[in-house]
Design a protein around this nucleic acid. Sequence first.
DNA 1: ATGCTGTTGTTATGATCCTACAAACGCGCT
DNA 2: AGCGCGTTTGTAGGATCATAACAACAGCAT
Lengths: 249, 249
Amino acid sequence: MTRDESAAIDAFERLGLTSYEAKVFIALQQVGSGTARDVARTTDVPRSQVYSVAESLEERGLLAVQQASPIRYRPVSIEEAQTTLRNRFEREQERAFDYVEQVKRDSVEEETQEDIWTVRGRERVDDRVVDLVSNADDRILFGTRLPDLVTPALGEALENRAAEGVAITVVSRDEGVRDKLGSLEGVTAKRPPTHREGDKRSGRILIVDDDGILLSVVDDSGGETAIWSAGSLFASVLIQLIEASDEIR
Amino acid sequence: MTRDESAAIDAFERLGLTSYEAKVFIALQQVGSGTARDVARTTDVPRSQVYSVAESLEERGLLAVQQASPIRYRPVSIEEAQTTLRNRFEREQERAFDYVEQVKRDSVEEETQEDIWTVRGRERVDDRVVDLVSNADDRILFGTRLPDLVTPALGEALENRAAEGVAITVVSRDEGVRDKLGSLEGVTAKRPPTHREGDKRSGRILIVDDDGILLSVVDDSGGETAIWSAGSLFASVLIQLIEASDEIR
DNA sequence: ATGCTGTTGTTATGATCCTACAAACGCGCT
DNA sequence: AGCGCGTTTGTAGGATCATAACAACAGCAT
C-alpha cells in the first residue's frame, strides 16, 4: 500500500465510502473488469467481502454487475463516477439545507448584538472577509502586507462593490498587493505612511462602512486567526481608534 | 423530532457530519447564536457533549466560537456553509480521483470483450444511455414509450451527435416523446409500425452504430433495469435480431 | 468569611452501532 | 471427493451516543 493510495482511500472515505468500497473501486479501475477473485488479488480485501461491497458500490452507481458465473464486475468510467458522486452530494446538500432554511430564525434584531467573534483558519477568514465586503454600502478599507491573502474571490467582491459606488481603499506596503487590487476599476491603492519594522504577525485588516471590522494575525506556523464584529458598538469604537492612528490612511 | 428534521439530519450525515453535529448546526441556525445550554435546550444533545461537537464543527468551518464566559456559538451563514461543504467535497473528490487516474489501466483491448452488463436504477440507466450516445459515430436509434425517460441530458447528447453528422432516429408511440426529440435539429421522429397492446414493461431501447445496444425494462414498482453491451459480438447480433423484426423501424 | 446553590466546562464511563476481518458453510461442477 | 464460487455467520476494534461525575466559579444569604 503506497502513500498515495492510502491518501486516496482516505479521500474516498471522506466522500462517504468505506475503506473496502474505496479499495474495490480503485482495484477495478486498475484491472478494468474482473471477478471477485481478481479484485481480492489486487487488494487486501478478503474475497468473501467483495460481493457485498460490490453490491453497495452498485447501489451507489459506481460499478456494474454482470450476471454470469462467476460474477464479473466493471467500474463505471471515472467521469461518470465523478458526476454520480457530485449529483449525490448536491442532492443531499439540498435536502439538508432546505430544512435548515425553513426553520432558520429570522435573525433581524440580532445584528446589533455586542459580539466579537473569532474565526480560525485561512479559508474561514477568507470567507468572512468576502462576506463582510459584500455587505458594504458606503466604503471599504482593506489592508494586508501578505500577497497570499488577496484571493480571487476577494477581488471579485471588491469589484462588485465598486460597481455599486462603494469607495474602496487598499493599503499595503507590498507592491504586489497594491498592483493587484489597485488595477481594479474604482479601487484606490495606497502605501501606509509609517512602517513598523518588526511587524511579522499582522495578517489583514478590513473596515466596512463605519460598523464592520475584521483584524487577523498570523502565528508562527502560518495559521491565521481573525476577530471580527459588525453592527456593534465594539466595531465602531474599534474603527475610530484605529483610524485615529496613522498606521493606515 | 419531526419527519422533516430527521430527514435533514440524515442528509447531513451522508454529507459526513455525525448526528450530533447535524443537530447542533441546525439548532444554532434556529436560535441564531447561543451558549451550550441554549443549544442543548433546543435539541436532545446533552449539554456536556455540545462543547466537543461545536469544536469539530468549528474545524469544519460551520460555526464560529466566541471566546467569552459562557462560550457562545454562532453558525456561519447558510450560503457560507454550503460553499464550505462544497469546496471540501471538490477537494476530496479531486484527491481521490487523481490517484485513480494515475493507476487506471489503459484498457485498450478490453472494449471487445464479450460482455453484457446490467445496470439497475433509473439514473444509472440515464447515465449509461448518455454515455453510449456520446460515443456514436454513425447512427443512433432511440425508442421509448415513456416520456419520463427522455431527460434533458439525453436531449443535449443527441443534439451534439446530430451536429457531428450522426443520423438519429427516435421511435415512440407517445406523441410527447416524438415532439420533444423530433424538434431537435437533425433528429427524425417516427411511430413504430406495430402496436403491442400488452406492453407495460418495456422501458427504452437504444442502438448505437452497429455495435452498441441498451435495452431496459420497468418493473411493477417503477424500478428500471437495463442490459447493455458495446463492441461485442453479442451487441451486433442482438441489433440484427431486433432490426429484423419490424417493431422499430 | 463561610456555606449553599446553580452554572459552566471538562472528563470518565458504559451502551450501542458499524466496519474490518476471519472462518465456515452450502452449492454446483468436474 | 475435490475445487472454486457465493453466502452466511461470528468476533474484535473503533467511533458515536448517552449519562454521570467532577472541579472551578459566581451569586447570594448567612
